[in-house]
Each structure stands twice: as structure tokens, then as C-alpha cells.
Amino acid sequence: MNQVIAHEVDFTDYKSDVTPVWCPGCGDYAVLSAITKALAGLGLARENVALISGIGCSSRIAAYTSVYGFHGIHGRALPIAQGLKLARPDLTVLCAGGDGDGFSIGGNHFMHACRRNLDLTYIVMDNNVYGMTKGQASPTSAADWTESKLTPEGPGVPPFQPLDIALAAGASHVARCFSGKVQMLTKTIAEAIQHPGFSFIQVISPCVTYRPEMRDFKNLVHESFTEACTDRREARRRLIDDDGFSLGTLFKSVEPSYKPSHRNSEPLDELERQFAL
């Protein structure tokens, strides 16, 4: 994590002047708010923070902040974020996107980012739908969700389980939040930024346009992950009874990160000596 700035900062300083393309009532507004509040709360200098995103409604978030941003390509936010973090370990690097971006097209990168356990915070705004392409089933849609023209009989496969996968793949900080509970989300994001390893936060973030029934999720969520487990097996056991609406930090443990080899600084002609006969 980067150096903290001394004076008081307002979270609106971390917002840009670009107007979001999001629909009124979209859960992603709250996530933007929580990220900027977390950054302000930690007093991080804007120029030392980078927010990397992919493609999709939620991935637009990068341009709505005033830190360094990168709105890349669909599914590849995590490789960009990891490349940046490896090259510039001095920066605070956040990565954000949607469930399609992160769990479907970017699913392979998600697993390997968990394994690598670099000091990053990955926030997935999960709305169970592809919103930007106008309402198709995402990897977290229910098998019998029949509202999409693309899968009129439902996607027909059980939903992806982000927390199980993150836990199994090696993420060292795993949490679930709800966009309707901004205070908890802000606190969780701040903790995730401070955690020295790969932090994954699944944020249930309702799509009021294509999944209007998600408005009722506020009645279904419950704060069951009251205290973070530090034991991975115990965290897995907790997930057995998870209904998908348990909120809180499921697991948190300081574990080894991928580290590049020790670096030297030899002159080039020293290197080139190996070719001389």
C-alpha cells in the first residue's frame, strides 16, 4: 500500500467529472461511492492508486474515479492489473468488473490471480446478468432463469460459485458484500486494500433493468460471516451452508505472494560475455 497523505480528504475528490452510463438505481453507484470513500478514509494519494477494469456496465467504473485508471478489454482486467503491480509494487492497485467479465471470459485469469496472491484488491459487481448486451444469462444466473431471449429455457447449468473458487484457488482474503449496505462495503474494501495479498470481494449489485427481482435481495441478505476465518478448511466448511446471501469477510490470512527472483544490476557487457567464445 502506498504512502498516506497528511491532510483530510473528501471522498468526492476521488470521483471524476464523467457522468456514468449506468441506469438510475443501479447498484454500481454505491460501489463507486464505497471505493472512493475507502480511498479517502485511507488517505491514499490519487496518483499512487490505479483502478483497472475490463468491459461491461460495471467496468466503466475506472473512468468515474480520479485515480489512474485503465478500461481495458473484456475479461483481461486481472492480467493488466497484475502486470502493473509486478512492475510497480509501490502502487495501490485495484481491479473491478462484472460477473461475466470476471467469472466467464476472464475465469482462467481469476483462478490464477488467486493462486499468485499478489497484493491486489479485486471487486466484482455481481448482478447475475450481462447488462451491456441487454440482458443475457451470466455465469451466476440461476439454471432456470428464463428471461433472456438467448436462453429462453434458462441457461441450464448451475451457477458459478465465486467464493468457493476463490478459496480453492488460493485467494487470501475472500468477502461478500451487498451494494445496498455501503458502510459495510466501504469498510470491507478498506480492509481488502490493507490486506497484503489477493483480496476478492463479491459485491451483490442489483441490475434494476434486466433483473428487477434483485431489488428484493435487500430482504434476503444476512450478515452471517461475522468474523473472518483464518483457517481455509474452516472457511470451506462455512460455505457448505451458504445460501449465496451471506455477507461479510469469509476468510483472511496472510500467506506468501508470488515474488519475482531477486534482482541485480550488472552492466550489459557482463551479460554479453556469455556469447564470446
Partner: peptide, 13 residues
């Protein structure tokens, strides 16, 4: 896919 995107990330840095 990861290699090309990672080097873009490092270049951004």
C-alpha cells in the same frame, strides 16, 4: 491472453 495483457499493464506502469 494473460501474457499480452500483463505486458500492457507493466507498460502502463
Amino acid at each position: 491472453l494473460a501474457s499480452v495483457n500483463m505486458i500492457v499493464g507493466a507498460s502502463f506502469g
